[in-house]
Every structure is written in structure tokens, then in C-alpha cells.
Amino acid sequence: MRHRTNLMKGSGPLWLTMAPFLIIFVAFSLFPVLFSAWLGVHAWDGFSTPRFVGFDNYATALADPVFRKAVWNTIHVWFWSTLITCGLALVLAVLINEYAVFGRTYFRMVFLLPLLVAPAIAAIILRVLFSANGGLVNLMIGEITGTPTFFSWFDSEIWIKPLVVLLVIWRWTGWHMIIFLAGLQAIPRDIYEAARLEGVSRWSVFSRITLPLLAPALAFSIITATLGGLQMFDEPFVLTQGIGGTNHSATTLGMYLYATAFTQFDFGLGAAVSWYIFAAVVAMTLLYRRLSAGLGAAR
């Protein structure tokens, strides 16, 4: 009894305050995740009796050319969108922090505006601007070349992925820029003053001082972009009106997962795909942690 009162005094209040979070989390996040592991090794359409199939679902996914294409598409979109978004955001943040003559508050606000637009809604706007019949982009090309253009951007296997990437860049550059600006403002100004007095070139200041000190913000930024990129769904789904483009040219892993579960009702295969996505997320996070730790040590 005495032991019990001690325990209550020890961690009772902690568990009490965590209780609402824990209860909802266990019921609606932990349970589904565990259930997903079970689903992954069963063949089930949601109605008939589930059948244990071992790792067949995982093998089926690997053997499916559409799945392999989705892996490739996801990597392609994730890589280019992360590289360009983070690169552009970094340049903008450094420019705003150190070189902007006016409008610092304006820039922060204005680059952030696209983030307020839902991915699905941004995709609608992009569909209108790039529409084959009378879309602004085709009108402009027609005006420049002198021949009316009715190019169908969203049916093109070549252009659909760059359009998805463009959408991500448009929405996310401002977010990454704000993260980098916060990181930059944490760097003490006198380091720059000292470097300037020493006559260190701008490039050296950037690569030897700014970049290493910005490493934590960069890591956060890239990990967040990767978590989102590997699960991308809304943008390609709305841009291709749910079909994934001509010959699955824009089917991402997120869309493949959705299609297996909610159009083919193959819940086991869908669960297996979600575990592949999870494995990719974990692998990328660990890899990035290791890389940034290595960079830190080298410095």
C-alpha cells in the first residue's frame, strides 16, 4: 500500500496529464498501425474471410510493374521538389536576411501565401492555367509562336511530373524559407562582422559560416519535405483527376496505396505498400541523421 501511494505521487500526475492524448492515440493510431501489420500478411477484401498469405502481398507489390513505376515516380517527384524547394528557399532566406534593402516583412508574408491554399485547390488552379483549351499557358505559347496551341499538359507523360513538382515548389518554398530565416537569425551577427573585417569573401562566409550553422534547420527542413514527399497524394491525385496520368506517369506510392485499397479493395496489398512507405521514411531519416552527424564531425 505504501509502495502504491509512492508510485502515485511519483508518476501519477504525469500519466493523468498524458491520459487524453494516450487514450486517443492508442485507440486511433497505435491500434490501426498494429492492425495494419496484421492486414499486410492477409488477403482480404473487407467482406469475405481473411486468409493468411505470409509475405505474398509484399511480393505481389514488388512484382507489379505499376508499383515499380510508382516507386520511381515518387523518388523522382520527391527528389526534384525537395532539391528545388529547399534550394530556392535557402537562397531567398539568405537574401532576405542579409541583402534585402526593404520589404522583409512583405517577403515573409507573400511567399507563405501559397501554403494557405490546399494542395487540392492549388491543383485546380494549376489545371485551369495549363488547360488544353484556352488555358493561359497555351494561349501565351500560341501568341509567341503564332500558331494556336492546344497542348494537353496533363495527358503528357513527360510534363505531368514537372507540373506536380511545380505545385510542390509553389506551395512549400515559403514554409522552408521561414524555417531557414529562423535558423539564420539565431546566428550571432558579430561572426559576420568579424569575417567581413577579415576580408573573407561572400561565398566563403556562406559556405564556411552560414551553411554549417544552418545544418539543424536544413536537416529539419529536408526531413519534413521527405516525410511529405514519400507519401504524396493530394497533388498528383487532383492534377490527374484520380487516374495517375497517362500510363501511370504520375502515380505516386500514396496514390497506388489508395487505389489498391479503395478501388480494388485489396486491403492486404495496400497495407503491405504502406509498410514499404514506412520503411522508406525510416531509412531516409536514419540516412539523413547519419549524413548530418558526419558533416557536423567534419566541421
Binding site: 504525469l14 492524448f21 486491403f267
Partner: peptide
Amino acid sequence: RPGHKFLLAMTFATLFFPPSLALIPFFL
């Protein structure tokens, strides 16, 4: 307090659980 480290680590770990992992079982 006892359990603090575990709860904090667990909460951090949830950040790396992609929502897509729970999508299908959540629907069911």
C-alpha cells in the same frame, strides 16, 4: 518522474509514423 523518458521518447517517435500507414486500418 518514472515513465517520463519513455513517454517523451514515444511522443517523439509518433512524429515518424506516416499517416498513410494507418489509412486503411483506420478506414476499416
